[in-house]
Design a protein around this nucleic acid. Structure first.
Length: 825
RNA sequence: GCCGGGAUGGCGGAAUCGGCAGACGCAGAGGACUUAAAAUCCUCCAAAGGGCGACCUUUGUGCGGGUUCAAGUCCCGCUCCCGGCACCA
């Protein structure tokens, strides 16, 4: 067979190819041929997406890993006959650019655009098959005008609102944070301890969607790990609301409980320090001032302080009493730090016998403990002497409910309360509404105007975008930069035409990224965020690749957005990402890379030293995608050696004597069929890239031994198959070899290889013979040998006979092609 | 504390539906080629014991039990590691 040695231009010899020359040549060529351009037609669609990066200035190894994984999937799907959408863009709003402006004076937009240009260049050097004609940048007016338009949609639908209340404040970022962005009491981005402030802020009503966000997880092909995190975050609790009247005020306190069956054991009621009724309850009471001091103390404590001393429950008696809704007894009302204002109703009933916190609290303050649920009858003397009894059981001392089981009683008591207007069945969620306003410049301005006469007025769609002013100054001190630009803030009311002030807060950048995957389907739209038909065609994303750190941030927000847009009739899907590949971290020298540990690796150095293909191959081979991946020099060198080995295998072909051929034809065909089957399965549904690479290595090793003894057509088919199977993972080398094998069209436009299943059948197989569970012999037999024949042959074997000895075979199990198991007694 | 995931050679990992544990690679050892080295090609490589040898025996997938002809895989009870949530009523 013919190998063309001097196509097309570059250096390299049969022993070693010139990585740089080959890679840069084909990158330029592919761009010219628009290889990654999104095709439309009658092919089935495949939307392959990786989380777009924040343009920090440089790619890091985590990016290299995500984009490699996505690119392999995209290339594989193209060769399998799909119209693939594989776009890229920039999550370009955000604090770092603004902080850089404070430090260096470079305007955020300038530094952002520079960073984008450099990172785009890096991605191009990685040879990623991205359709750059669909690039989106969230910080450009062409994009954020639609982020604003979507805000207006939320506003119209009652899903965007302002609320005054305690919020998470990051003193270092000088802005508020959503609950999801507070990680263990600290800011998710800068790690500073988060404090509380009372502010009027904008929220998205994500809690309206809690139940759907929970229910629809079920149908998603996502890792359990991520789904579980979302389930926990949403935090659904089923229970009852119980109303405790306060006769002296003519008011009532609502509490939420998951254990209505323990209601008769409630001996007191506790309010959160922030609870609105506190002041009215204590007014005129002897210890009113002491309670006020206590409340004030607790309110200034940050979350971390409050949770740091989890065991120390502090509280005070208000001096007021409520009425038990079922017994009518007076129960004291307390205020305590262990009750949280943001969960449930901000008040709880204290059931010391059956709740561990209430037990501790009652012990500390000498409150009565009353047993109403017991594991057995009679009630053990010491049931709650040492600790609470919180398991289900049988009700005692519970009026008409005495004798019921806990589960039955939960429903019965809730029902009873509902009938009497004292509460009833109720479901609560842990998730809070999404706080989306930020007191910063570099984000999409919230498109509303505050008018002294009309109140909050949305900016009409026709007046979008509300552009960011370019003359902002960045001092890092004081209020948002936008608030300081009088000519920008002062405007006219769209409704009455009178003087009004613009909203000076911008939107959380997670709003920008909650819909970018829709924009990619039709990035050129100028009068709407996206073309509904394009969205209908491409959505949902078939494979979404990204990091686990977004389990309850981006991934939850995007699901919420999609559901809102579905309800508005803008998109036909309720879930944006059908399948999720959550890849692990990149580790170097035993730890996650960080500047402080001094174990960083720059993609620039690595790619120029080893080339894109070797880097990609190593990333794919060293670990399954969802696990952490440790970078090692020896590892990437191994991948590099393998690629050079493939090069030599193909390039040496001309030198192979054409004499004694065809003897290995069938063996080569079988090896080829096995390789195609394995790589196809692994790159497809299994996403087991590591074993796909190992299958190619085995195939290559085999061909080294055998391909020289195959006839020319078989040999060619075997080698071309190797190149095709390698194409998604090592695209540059595969392209070079494909052309050298005499093809005029790109390997990446070829169809994925297939195989005839008959070649999967071996002529002879090795069968293990087990006697009483231990392998005693291995036989090589024809693959199609019948079960009885197989047992007969096994019994005829000398080693088997020796092992059986005088015993009798009482049972035999045959697994075709694998083993014979004999039970001997 | 609760929830989830995991533990397999010196290392990364494989074993997809209960069927020969350790594929593939790295590291290591030996050989070929070379004046030599690098590169390359070939062979060996879980542990212990035995045999000149092809090989044979025993043990072995975090620990202890169990089910089964057969268990890394299933069941029961633990240990440790990683991740998430954490006074959520």
């Amino acid at each position: 067979m013919q190998i063309e040695r001097d196509v097309p231009v570059h250096a390299g010899n049969p022993d070693r190819y010139d990585v740089k020359a080959v890679e840069s040549y084909w990158q330029a060529q592919w761009e010219r041929e628009e290889l990654a351009k999104t095709e439309v037609g009658d092919k089935p669609k495949f939307y392959c997406l990786e989380q777009f990066p924040y343009p920090s200035g440089h790619l890091h190894m985590g990016h290299v890993r995500v984009y490699t994984l996505g690119d392999v999937i995209a290339r594989y799907r193209r060769m399998n006959g799909y119209a693939v959408l594989h776009p890229m863009g920039w999550d370009a709003f955000g604090l770092p650019a603004e902080n850089a402006a404070i430090k260096s004076g470079i305007p955020p937009r300038v530094s952002t655009m520079n960073n984008i240009a450099y990172m785009k260049h890096q991605m191009q050097e990685m040879g990623l098959s991205l359709d750059w004609s669909r690039e989106v940048t969230t910080s450009e007016p062409e994009y954020y005008r639609f982020t604003q338009e979507l805000f207006l949609l939320f506003f119209e639908r009652g899903l965007a609102y302002q609320k005054e209340g305690p919020v998470n404040w990051c003193p270092s970022c000088e802005t508020v944070l959503a609950n999801e962005q507070v990680v263990e009491g600290a800011c998710w981005r800068c790690d500073s301890p988060v404090t509380k402030r009372d502010l009027r802020q904008w929220y998205f009503r994500i809690t309206d969607y809690a139940e759907r966000l929970l229910q629809d997880l079920e149908g998603l092909d996502w890792p359990t790990e991520i789904k579980v995190q979302q389930v926990n975050w949403i935090g659904k609790s089923v229970g009852a609301e119980v109303v405790f009247p306060i006769p002296e005020l003519g008011e009532k306190i609502s509490v939420f409980t998951t254990r209505p069956d323990t209601l008769y054991g409630a001996t007191y009621v506790v309010l959160a320090p922030e609870h609105p009724l506190v002041e009215r309850l204590i007014a005129g009471k002897p210890n009113a001032d002491a309670v006020r001091r206590f409340v004030a103390e607790e309110r200034v404590r940050s979350d971390i302080e409050r949770t740091a001393e989890t065991s120390e429950k502090r509280g005070m008696f208000t001096g007021a009493y409520a009425q038990h809704p079922l017994t009518g007894q007076a129960v004291p009302i307390w205020v305590a730090n262990y009750v949280l204002m943001d969960y449930g109703t901000g008040a709880v009933m204290g059931v010391p016998a059956h709740d561990y916190r209430d037990w501790q609290y009652a012990r500390k303050y000498g409150l009565p403990i009353r047993v109403v649920v017991t594991p057995k009858l009679p009630v053990p003397e010491d049931l709650v002497a040492e600790r609470e009894y919180s398991l289900p059981g049988v009700l005692v001392d519970s009026g008409p409910f005495t004798g019921m089981g806990s589960e039955e009683a939960k429903a019965a008591i809730a029902e009873h309360l509902a009938e009497r207007g004292l509460g009833g069945p109720r479901v609560t969620y842990r998730m809070r509404d999404w706080l989306i306003s930020r007191q910063r410049y570099w984000g999409a301005p919230i498109p509303v105007v505050h008018c002294p006469d009309c109140g909050v007025v949305p900016v009409p769609k026709s007046q979008l975008p509300v552009l960011l002013p370019e003359n902002a100054t960045f001092t890092g001190r004081g209020a948002s930069p936008l608030a300081q630009i009088a000519e920008w803030v002062n405007t006219t009311c769209p409704r009455c035409g009178g003087p009004a002030r613009r909203e000076t807060d911008t939107m959380d950048t997670f709003v920008d990224s909650s819909w970018y995957f829709l924009r990619y389907t039709s990035p050129g739209e100028t009068d709407r965020p996206f073309d509904p038909q394009a969205v209908a065609f491409w959505l949902p994303v078939d494979e979404y690749v990204g990091g686990k750190e977004h389990a309850v941030l981006h991934l939850l927000y995007s699901r919420f957005f999609t559901k809102v847009l579905y309800d508005a009739g803008w998109v036909p899907v309720q879930e944006p990402f059908r399948r999720l590949l959550a890849q692990g971290m990149v580790v170097y020298r035993g730890a996650k890379m960080s500047k402080s540990k001094g174990n960083t690796l720059s993609p620039e150095t690595i790619l120029s030293e080893w080339g894109t293909d070797a880097t990609r191959l190593f990333i794919l081979f060293a670990a399954p995608p969802e696990k952490d991946f440790e970078w090692t020099e020896q590892g990437v060198e191994g991948a590099y050696r393998f690629l050079q080995r493939v090069w030599r295998l193909v390039m040496r072909e001309e030198a192979v004597p054409s004499g004694d051929t065809a003897v290995q034809d069938d063996a080569v065909r079988r090896a080829r069929a096995r390789a195609v089957k394995k790589v196809t399965e692994d790159l497809g549904d299994r996403r087991a890239f590591n074993t796909a690479v190992s299958a190619l290595m085995e195939y290559t090793n085999f061909l080294y031994q055998a391909v020289g003894s195959a006839s020319p057509p078989v040999r060619r088919e075997a080698l071309e198959t190797l190149v095709l199977l390698l194409a998604p993972m090592a695209p540059h080398l595969a392209e070079e070899l494909w052309r050298r094998l005499g093809h005029g069209e790109s390997v990446h436009r070829q169809s994925w290889p297939t195989y005839d299943p008959r070649w999967l059948k071996e002529e002879a197989v090795e069968i293990a013979v087990q006697i009483n569970g231990k392998v005693r012999a291995r036989l090589t037999v024809p693959a199609d040998l019948g079960e009885q024949e197989l047992v007969a042959q096994a019994l005829a074997d000398e080693r088997v006979r020796a092992a059986v000895g005088q015993g009798a075979v009482t049972k035999s199990v045959v697994v075709p092609g694998r083993l014979v198991s004999l039970v001997v007694r």
